[in-house]
Every structure is written in structure tokens, then in C-alpha cells.
């Protein structure tokens, strides 16, 4: 069911518990009382349509157009993405790694040994990618915002946000491989319970990562492109 600005936050979460996560990524923590999304968004100074659009993305309901235009929206999206990164690096990936370690201690088949190495490499790959976004992409966007706000528009910008569109594909592909290996191929040996926990973690991570990519592709990148074009137009006419 489509989530609206008038929907009560508690009801939304009772119906779809996974939505605790996007609220957390926006920096909005429990508890919510009887407040609806509009009220919460005013309290946290976030565009209510941005919140409902992201929540609906989690339910696989995509609005036809995302109409976010302001620099404040852009800042909120960056905060959301940064919080996602923290969640992945500090919580989700270590939790997955710990479960793989637990499996390793009770299932010593060759596949699990290889899986441990596979995940260790994967974790490094994800961390490097997120570090790139934190250290290069987000500061670049913040820099563009500063230029626009300070009317300091004569700087030459050669970098374009378009370059990072395809980065997530490889990460999601390997995550799918990991799930496939655990479900189809790696022999079980008293690790059913831990493997189930691991799979739940992987599915949750996959879902969050998928929405994270969609937010970048459908909301963040178009907004930044708009900002870049504004700067280019200004430079061309001055």
C-alpha cells in the first residue's frame, strides 16, 4: 500500500518493519508516538516528499517522477547515504563476517574456507567503494552546493557525477552470488541456524543496498546534474 505524508509512522513500521532502517538512515530514531510523516518531517526539517518517496522505494513502489529541487534536499540525501555507509561498515558487514566465522568454526569444508576469503575480499571492495563516495563524491557535491550558495561560480569543474553511475553493479552481483552459494551449493554441516541468520542478514543488506543505489541513480544523480548544468549555464553567460 502506498505510503502517504499523512500516514502514521508507527503504523507504517508495524506493517513493514524493514522501514525502521530508512528512518534511521534519515537520522530519525524511535519512538514515534502518534505522529504522521508530515509531522516527523517538520520536526527533523526534512522534505516530507523525500521521506515518503524513499519509504515507497522500499516497498517497490516507484513514483513516476522524483521532484526534489532544493539544495536542502540534496544535503538530506547525502546525510541519508552517509548514514547508510556507516550502517554497512560498522554494523552490517561485521555482522555478516561474524556469522561466516561462526560457520567456519563448525563446518570445515573447503567451500566455507573459500567463502571466508571471498567475503573478506568483498568487504574490502565495498569498503573501498564507500570510502571513494565519502572522500570524493560527497565532498564534490558539497563543494558544488557551496559554490552555488556563495555565488562563487567561476570555478572550472571537470568532474561529473555521471562517472559513478555503474559502481554498485559489481557489489550487488557478488552479494547475489554469495546467497546462491549458501542456498544451492555449499554443503551444510550443523550450521543450519547460523546459515539462516546469515542469509537473513544478506537479504536485508541486499535490499538496503538496492534502495541505496536507486536513491543515487534516481534522486541524487539527476539533482547533481541539474546543479552542474546551472553552474555551466552561469559560466557560459558570464
Amino acid at each position: 500500500m502506498l505510503i502517504k505524508n499523512t500516514s502514521k509512522v508507527a503504523e507504517v513500521i508495524l506493517n513493514h518493519h524493514i522501514l525502521i532502517l530508512p528512518f534511521e538512515h534519515f537520522g530519525i530514531n524511535l519512538s514515534f508516538g502518534e505522529k504522521n510523516i508530515s509531522e516527523i518531517s517538520r520536526e527533523f526539517n526534512i522534505n516530507e516528499n523525500l521521506i515518503t518517496s524513499v519509504l515507497n522505494l522500499f516497498l517497490e513502489i516507484e513514483p513516476k517522477d522524483f521532484t526534489f529541487n532544493t539544495v536542502d534536499d540534496l544535503r538530506q540525501i547525502i546525510i541519508y547515504l552517509k548514514n547508510c555507509h556507516l550502517y554497512y561498515i560498522e554494523e552490517k558487514l561485521p555482522s555478516i563476517e561474524e556469522l561466516i566465522n561462526q560457520i567456519t568454526s563448525i563446518n570445515n569444508c573447503s567451500e566455507i574456507t573459500l567463502l571466508k576469503k571471498f567475503f573478506s575480499d568483498y568487504k574490502t571492495e565495498v569498503a573501498n567503494h564507500l570510502k571513494y563516495e565519502n572522500d570524493v563524491v560527497h565532498p564534490y557535491i558539497e563543494y558544488l552546493i557551496t559554490l552555488l550558495e556563495n555565488k562563487d561560480l567561476n570555478n572550472e569543474n571537470t568532474y561529473s557525477v555521471l562517472v559513478y553511475k555503474d559502481f554498485h553493479d559489481d557489489i550487488e552481483e557478488k552479494l547475489n552470488d554469495l546467497k546462491n552459494l549458501l542456498i544451492k551449493y555449499i554443503p551444510i554441516s550443523n550450521d543450519q541456524q547460523i546459515r539462516r541468520k546469515l542469509l537473513f542478514d544478506l537479504f536485508e543488506f541486499d535490499s538496503d543496498l538496492n534502495i541505496h543505489s536507486k536513491i543515487e541513480e534516481k534522486i541524487l544523480i539527476p539533482l547533481v546534474e541539474k546543479l552542474e548544468n546551472n553552474l555551466k549555464e552561469y559560466n557560459a553567460t558570464n
Binding site: 573447503s110 567451500e111 574456507t113 573459500l114 567463502l115 571471498f118 575480499d121 568483498y122 559489481d170 552481483e173 557478488k174 547475489n176 552470488d177 554469495l178 546462491n180 552459494l181 544451492k184 551449493y185 555449499i186 554443503p187
Partner: peptide, 22 residues
Amino acid sequence: KSGIKSLAALIIFAVSKNYIHI
């Protein structure tokens, strides 16, 4: 057929099917 795309994961698939030894 395997559902596996990356080379790193195909290695584990190949071991699980005994096509190669670790």
C-alpha cells in the same frame, strides 16, 4: 545454469561440484 556470475564465486561453485580441488 549455476546462477553464479562472478569469477571468485565460480571458483567456490567449481569446488562444490568437484570440478576442481581446492
